[in-house]
């Protein structure tokens, strides 16, 4: 019974993080990655920003040096995992159906199926979406957001949570910069305003240009594990 007014209501303090369950699973994933010295990347970005093409370029540049595994998240189908399979990387497809993001449990199940070797690179391609995936930790070491010049230089401001939570940003499709109103300096300044720690790379994944700085940063990160 309530001591204040004598009603039969009772207040129970809970203080539980709503994302706690996902975060605990993510911590388990990360512990597994660390124990096997696996570098895990969570690749996010709008549909059509060029994530898959960028991943394929990354695989091509690194596959002679390390084993590469990919978890491919899409609402439906296996178009992207079919493309990635052709590079020789091991791929596991997750279809989220109506789900708009990957979560740590789905990644854990996919990792069990892939059973990645030690010292490998694990690339998780999230569902194309510039909003929801930002909230869900998967246990990754790097959160990489890919955004393309055709989306406009104002995207970091408009979809701030995603850019705020990222560790790396890839400005993609720079080969189209002459054809669209995209100001690279303005984009970089907008990124700085949202996240001063973000590491930014400008590339054209399709043409394979300016990929070296990104590839070098991955080599360095793989060596550090």
């Amino acid at each position: 019974m309530c001591e204040t007014c004598g009603c039969n209501q009772k207040e129970m303090v809970v203080a539980e993080d709503v994302l706690g369950k996902n975060n605990r699973m993510a911590a388990e994933n990360k512990a597994l990655f660390n124990s096997k010295k696996i570098l895990a990347l969570n690749m996010m970005g709008s549909p059509g920003s060029g994530k898959t093409t960028f991943i394929i370029r990354t695989i091509e540049a690194l596959k002679s040096e390390t084993d590469i595994y990919v978890i491919e998240g899409d609402q439906f189908g296996s178009l992207d995992s079919d493309r990635i399979s052709k590079t020789g990387a091991h791929v596991e497809q997750i279809n989220t159906g109506n789900g708009c993001h990957l979560d740590a449990m789905g990644v854990s199940n996919a990792v069990k199926k892939l059973n990645p070797s030690k010292n490998a690179l694990l690339i998780i391609e999230n569902v194309g979406n510039l909003v929801c995936p930002a909230l869900f930790n998967l246990g990754e070491h790097q959160r990489v957001v890919v955004f393309s010049v055709t989306e406009g230089d104002d995207k970091p401001i408009k979809y701030a949570p995603m850019f705020h939570e990222a560790t790396h940003c890839i400005i993609n499709k720079t080969d189209l910069m002459d054809f669209v109103p995209f100001d690279l300096n303005a984009a970089i300044r907008n990124l700085e305003k949202i996240n001063h720690k973000l590491q930014v790379f400008s590339v054209s994944a399709l043409k394979g240009t300016n990929m070296a700085a990104w590839i070098d940063s991955l080599k360095k990160a793989l060596g550090k594990l």
Binding site: K10, E11, A15
Partner: peptide, 10 residues
């Protein structure tokens, strides 16, 4: 983003 407390009727 957390559940702070619950109020119940006994």
């Amino acid at each position: 983003l957390s559940v702070k407390s619950l109020l119940s009727e006994d």
